[in-house]
């Protein structure tokens, strides 16, 4: 058990306290803003991991509701009966009702134990988050990161035995329905500029103006010419960049 969490574990005997499970450099500080007791500090450097003092936490749960990473939880061991109450933020579809039984899972989604929902509370502004409190055996409590009804959906895939034959030809340009094979044909003819390749193969001459296929064409050309993407360049952009009715453009059907 890490130092901080030992302290959380101890403090949780007195009152519910937060458990902050945030280690990465994330440019973010709503937890600091949420805490009225000054228990969570991020400081000037937005990317530093929060520094948390469980001693100052009053277990209000605001940080749990507001953490964008849903990485803060509450632990409450006041019962002293070998059971703990853990609170997790919950925003899934479906309904949870007090009294029902639910899986408690760890951060990897592994089912830890079954628990009973003891409290549901809405917190966190106009579009709040549900804080779900469950009661579980206390030895699992520090690991709980979520609750869930359903089983893992692992197993929904099947192995394909035979050597899978991939279709070789498929469109590169969606609008003009030009296949990669066709592009290669023009490259074989010796075309070496993006513009010439575009005009001849029609890749990028469609409705969308080539915003999806341009990258692909650049790649294909770059492979042949050994030029970087910057050197290969971009399609020349011509108006209109969005389709416009001819009548509109001519000022007829306003």
């Amino acid at each position: 058990m890490k130092g901080d969490w030992e302290k959380v574990w101890e403090e949780a005997r007195e009152r519910p306290v937060a458990l902050v499970d945030c280690r990465q450099e994330i440019p973010c500080n709503p937890c600091e803003e949420a805490c009225r007791k000054g228990a969570i500090r991020v400081g000037e450097d937005l990317c530093s991991a929060p520094v948390y003092d469980p001693g100052r936490c009053d277990g209000c749960g605001r940080c749990v509701a507001l953490c964008p990473g849903m990485a803060i939880f509450l632990l409450d061991r006041r019962g002293g009966d070998g059971q703990a109450e853990v609170t997790v933020p919950w925003e899934m579809c479906g309904e949870i009702v007090e009294g029902e039984r639910i899986w408690a899972v760890d951060g990897k989604g592994k089912v830890l134990t079954e628990g009973k929902v003891v409290k549901i509370k809405w917190m966190g502004g106009r579009w709040p988050t549900r804080l779900v409190t469950i009661r579980i055996p206390e030895e699992r409590a520090l690991k709980v990161r979520g609750v869930r009804f359903r089983e893992n959906s692992v197993g929904s895939s099947e192995e394909v035995d035979q050597e899978y034959d991939l279709p070789e030809d498929y469109p590169v340009c969606r609008c003009e329905d030009v296949s990669r094979e066709e592009v290669l044909k023009f490259l074989k003819m010796g075309l070496r500029s993006l513009t010439a390749l575009r005009r001849s193969s029609r890749v990028g001459l469609g409705y969308c103006q080539g915003i999806y296929c341009q990258e692909q064409l650049r790649k294909e050309l770059g492979m042949v010419t050994r030029r970087s993407e910057e050197e290969t360049g971009m399609f020349k952009v011509r108006p209109p960049v969005r389709p416009v009715k001819l009548g509109r453009l001519g000022g007829v059907n306003g």
């Binding site: 409705y207 011509r238 108006p239 416009v244 009715k245 001819l246 001519g250 000022g251 007829v252």
Partner: peptide, 19 residues
């Protein structure tokens, strides 16, 4: 566009996608 519509008014609903 305006000129084209003098001759072929029925193409007014076509989308211009490039110039």
């Amino acid at each position: 566009a305006r000129n084209a519509l003098r001759f072929l008014p029925w193409i007014k609903d076509l989308d211009v996608i490039r110039s």
